[in-house]
Nucleic acid binder design. Structure first.
Lengths: 149, 149
DNA sequence: TTATTTACGGATAACTATTATCCTTAACGA
DNA sequence: TCGTTAAGGATAATAGTTATCCGTAAATAA
């Protein structure tokens, strides 16, 4: 599962994967990968774009989306979809895992609990589905937002 | 939690709740509630609208959305949000519960597992969040879609 | 019953995150 | 260095949902 990998090592992994599949590692792509590897707050496409504008003033938001789409296809980024908000991305742990989401400020953190094998098997046994992914989100207020109420 | 309530009883509950809060129960709203109470396949807004066009040829899709928004606000319907697909609605069990979702045909079924108290408490202890809701989705292929591959 | 007020329904415009399109430019191999 | 092809940038298009506006129906009071 490649857990507990440093941001730089994770960056190398993503670059290697792109090269293996004959995709070019352009300066723009490298920059997006770097932000993803070093971000633990699950940034949105616009967050990533905003962070890159300093060094890449002409960086298009479309390029960020295209790079994210490529990484999704390679299984190198996890997309957290929201219908009413913008999607958020996790490049450090691209496999399904639980998230705790603040409905006040939008913060997203990863809890340590990760064990879904058993419960996933239970669901398959009961429903006959062949389950390949899952989503486990908890919604509430983070400590900061609780205090500032 | 009002589990295992018959569709007709569930319909009465929703109507009662609307009247309590001084909302009118118009023929259009009644029709939307009825579809929600009798549907177990988690219909979309358009599904509901399509089912009603026979008896209400002038029913507007906006009316369906408005009624769903009202029910959401009252906590009488659960909205399952998808960023790439249309949202789906559960009027029978308006509280958070797990779903098993077919990525082939879009079918959504409710497994029997419902116990989230313990795991929810664990998340609160670890993160300091005050958790009020959750989402637990399993994605895979239903038996029918597995066979027709 | 009638008048009055207010909420509701219907049609449609607006919104917004994301994707597609199109053309130019940059990357890589020979 | 040249030629091929993928990638970037700007912008149009998409689609589910929400907002707006006005006519109408529902509830209340006289």
């Amino acid at each position: 599962m490649n857990e507990n990998v440093s941001p730089d090592e994770r960056l190398r992994q993503m670059i290697a994967r792109l090269k293996e599949s004959d995709n070019r590692v352009t300066p723009q792509r490298y920059a997006v990968l770097k932000v993803l590897a070093h971000s633990f707050e699950h940034p949105s496409a616009e967050d990533i774009h905003a962070q890159l504008l300093d060094n890449f003033p002409t960086m298009s938001l479309a390029t960020v989306y295209k790079t994210l789409a490529l990484l999704k296809q390679q299984g190198e980024v996890l997309e957290l979809e929201f219908s009413d908000l913008c999607n958020r991305y996790d490049g450090n742990k691209p496999y399904p895992h639980p998230h705790v989401i603040c409905t006040g400020c939008g913060a997203i953190v990863d809890p340590s609990f990760q064990d879904f094998a058993e419960i996933s098997q239970k669901m398959m046994d009961e429903t006959g589905f062949k389950i390949v992914a899952h989503r486990f989100d908890f919604y509430g207020l983070c400590p900061d937002c609780q205090n500032s109420e």
